[in-house]
């Protein structure tokens, strides 16, 4: 699967409260509703600006803070295709893979807001069509590739009835 869209740029240490504030997430399981507030404290217009298939591009330690799975889910339901960052906080990273949101660890310095990107999550390759550059991503561990390929951890469990990495 090849993804194509524009970059929306954020800084280092984007925490889960910025991604989706606790004041919303404790109230509902309606992810479409939560998606309206995604990244609200960093960019109040983000939900309106993002086009289906666009990317969140950030610095280091994306998703630090709480364990709320509403964070990757709200991003996914805002129709963001993938998150590219220099590094991820580990709970967010697991949650993203478990819920089927592609996350790629790569050097994001050369990507500017609005750049048109093409992303191949399985191969771990990002092409910046605006700049004409190719950016390699750190490969996911095989366990995570397996979960992603199965369609997330819930689908993996439905298929095998438990963890199956053999």
């Amino acid at each position: 699967m090849i993804l194509a869209g524009r970059a929306h740029k954020f800084s280092d240490d984007v925490n889960t409260d910025y991604i989706i504030s606790g004041k919303y997430k404790f109230k509902t399981l309606d992810m479409k509703e939560l998606a309206k507030h995604v990244m609200e404290d960093l960019d109040p217009d983000f939900y309106r600006k993002v086009a289906p298939g666009d990317f969140i591009v950030a610095g280091a330690n994306f998703g630090c803070g709480s364990s709320r799975e509403q964070a990757p889910l709200a991003i996914k339901h805002a129709n963001v295709a993938a998150v590219l960052a220099k590094s991820f906080a580990r709970i967010f990273y697991r949650n993203a893979i478990n819920t089927g949101l592609p996350v790629l660890e790569c050097d994001t310095d050369g990507i500017e807001p609005g750049d048109e990107l093409t992303v191949d999550p399985a191969a771990g390759v990002i092409t910046n069509r605006t700049k004409g550059t190719v950016i390699p991503a750190k490969p996911l561990p095989p366990v995570m590739i397996k979960i992603l390929n199965d369609g997330g951890l819930a689908a993996h469990f439905r298929k095998y009835g438990g963890f199956n990495f053999d």
Binding site: E69, N95, T99
Partner: peptide
Amino acid sequence: TGVGSTDLAAGLISGQMWFK
């Protein structure tokens, strides 16, 4: 250690979790 909701569900069903 902290995990998300899907990992929690997987743990409740299987009594196991994968870790690096």
